[in-house]
């Protein structure tokens, strides 16, 4: 499995033609305590850059954009009752959606872990 990242602080883990998407530890630390997550409907077709989810901290609401195009295959329903998982385990239990890739060539535009780490260093 390969994990990619975006400058919007999302991670994308690729398993075959399915991408699991979440937000990075840096993103959750910037958001603060997450109190609500709005997830997309299963079967929804998302183009790269579409709003995939909304995550609300105590202070504010933020959009999570689809880092790649795909069809929503699964959503992490556990986040509905336990949105705090995004703070506790952002890069594992706190995943948001699984997308069935519809434009796998977009993966080439994503950052690898090293490039993402270097990007965060600049912030």
């Amino acid at each position: 499995m390969t994990t990619y990242f975006t400058k919007d602080h999302e991670w994308i883990r690729i398993d075959g033609d399915v991408a699991t998407v979440g937000i990075t530890d840096y993103a959750q630390s910037q958001l603060g305590d997450v109190v609500y997550v709005e997830l997309p409907e299963i079967g929804k077709a998302l183009a790269k850059g579409d709003e995939a989810a909304v995550v609300e901290s105590v202070k504010a609401a933020s959009e999570v954009f689809a880092p790649v195009s795909g069809t929503v295959e699964a959503v992490n329903v556990a986040l509905t009752d336990e949105p705090g998982k995004i703070n506790e385990s952002p890069e594992a239990e706190g995943w948001f959606v699984k997308l069935k890739l519809t434009a796998s060539d977009e993966l080439a535009e994503l950052l690898d872990e090293e490039a993402y780490k270097a990007f965060v260093e600049t912030l």
């Binding site: 603060g32 305590d33 109190v35 202070k59 703070n87």
Partner: peptide
Amino acid sequence: VQYPKGIIA
């Protein structure tokens, strides 16, 4: 706006 323990804590 907050310290390391976070707003809820």
